[in-house]
Design a protein around this nucleic acid. Sequence first.
DNA 1: AATTAAATTTAGACAAAGCTAAAAATTATA
DNA 2: TATAATTTTTAGCTTTGTCTAAATTTAATT
Lengths: 215, 215
Amino acid sequence: MTFSEENYLKTIYHLTSVSDADISTNAIAEKMETKASSVTDMLKKLSEKDLVNYVKYQGVSLTDKGKLAAKMIVRKHRLWECFLVEKLDFSWDEVHDIAEQLEHIKSEKLINKLDDFLGNPTEDPHGDPIPDANGRIIKVEKELLSEFEKNQIGICVGVKDTSSDFLKYLDKQEIALGSQIEIIEKESFDSSFRIRVGTKEITISNKIASNIYIK
Amino acid sequence: MTFSEENYLKTIYHLTSVSDADISTNAIAEKMETKASSVTDMLKKLSEKDLVNYVKYQGVSLTDKGKLAAKMIVRKHRLWECFLVEKLDFSWDEVHDIAEQLEHIKSEKLINKLDDFLGNPTEDPHGDPIPDANGRIIKVEKELLSEFEKNQIGICVGVKDTSSDFLKYLDKQEIALGSQIEIIEKESFDSSFRIRVGTKEITISNKIASNIYIK
DNA sequence: AATTAAATTTAGACAAAGCTAAAAATTATA
DNA sequence: TATAATTTTTAGCTTTGTCTAAATTTAATT
Ligand SMILES: [Mn+2]
Ligand SMILES: [Mn+2]
Ligand SMILES: [Mn+2]
Ligand SMILES: [Mn+2]
């Protein structure tokens, strides 16, 4: 399997996890910053290899084989992110791009040994679940901070947007995985929030609140 | 720089370290298990990028820029081999192929942090030197066991052949880096050796002896 | 020095993965 | 429902890295 094929599978997998319905050519093209015509070419190839169910003009979905392959790539990506943060002391906003490369290293033995070396983590540095060697995922209940109401208290357990910019913003506000967050006020006009993080009180926009997962 | 370009540079670098003279197209083709015509194409491209000095029909050598690039790839290869052996508990005969993939990961920060994490090793699991971040190499004096004479004693500090087969043979004979080796007898007929490794006495062929480095 | 052999390069082809522009199918709208 | 807009596919071209077969250059041998 080529890097490119792996990247398409991963993208389809991620798009599937939000929409459930078949994925459109354009959706893939947009997410991968490529052209629809290139996507069509690749879908034919992946279909030929029984990794996706593809019907012309009707969108695409992963086969069982394709889904497992995608999960294994996600597993590698997230385990390498753990390694970078926990062993090499990278910050959580620096690891994604490097993991994008490392996820394509081919060696089952390597990834399983890495998994053990890291103590078989179930979540990556952004709170996303890590599939095990069989593709099984432990799903954790979590809600967006934006869905919370006044006086509710929760723990930050993940982020929806994992861009470096957003993560750096959270660092600045001292919001990290494990931080306790209390809703002091919810402004009805713009749905912004007044929250308490640790000892500090801050105001965050609704856009920020809808990218933080709370439990 | 593409994977392929990096592999050519590395190959030229390794061939240079044994012969010193300009490297022939055929020598590169043989080592890379590719065709001479493919090599010619690539040499033109590398020359265009000032990574090699290439004169048609006259062979090729690395420029300073090319040599530094090659050393950085070797640095990554050997540091990853250390990681695999020391942290993930791979044996020395399993790591080369995985390192062939890992050496192409692009991130200076990653490799320097990995270097620190490993305690800045100067040698890889096969006794080969690891260039530092500036490309400097600490050369260690070493001689082939085959050059040794009766009654001499030395320590195994490296291997010339790093194939899995040879390394497994050494494992079987309980020869490892750091093993003390004493020449008991050198057979004049076939230049084979009777040696003592630790408490055991064994006989090895000249071919074996000329792939073990001793200090 | 002439001829033969070996090494090297060139020419032309191919697969992978991308692109643009045009055609076709689907969906939305008047 | 007919037309317009959007989405998707096809056709044809490009780059990278490879190959085979033919041509050229260099080296070796009579
Ligand atoms: Mn990531
Ligand atoms: Mn992540
Ligand atoms: Mn190696
Ligand atoms: Mn090595």
